[in-house]
Nucleic acid binder design. Sequence first.
DNA 1: TTAGTGACAGGCA
DNA 2: CTGCCTGCCACTA
Length: 116
Amino acid sequence: MDTSAAEELPGLAPFSQAVVRLIRAIPEGSVATYGDIATAAGSPRAARQVVRLLHTLSSKYRLPWHRVINKAGKIALTDPQAFELQKQKLIKEGVEVTEAGCVDLGQYRWLPYQGE
DNA sequence: TTAGTGACAGGCA
DNA sequence: CTGCCTGCCACTA
C-alpha cells in the first residue's frame, strides 16, 4: 500500500487528507456520496466541506472526483460541461447513468469502509 | 484574526 | 422521487 500510495499529502489539514484518501480509494465502477466521504473522514455533517475540498483539491491534485455524487444519486455539478464529463466518465467505468445524471445508488454506491 | 465558502443533507409537504 | 428551507461544518484566503 505504501508502494503505490507514495504520494504523501503536503501540509493539508487532517480532514482534507482523509477526504483525499477516501476519494482516491473509490473503486472504478462505483460511486460514493458526499455524506459517505464526510462520515468516513470523521465528520458526518461535513458533507459541504467535502465539496469545498473537491474544489480545491481537484484543482491541485488529480482525484477521481467524478465518482462522488449527492445522496439523491445524481451528479451535482453546476458546470454543464463538467456535468457531462462526469457522466461520461462514470459510464465509461460501467456505471449506468441516465441523461439526467441519475445513478442507481442501490447498485453502485460504495461504502468507504477502511478495512475493505 | 474573522468571515466566507459550498458539486450537501435532512425535514416537511 | 421532487421542491423549498434551514442548519451544517471544517477549511481557505
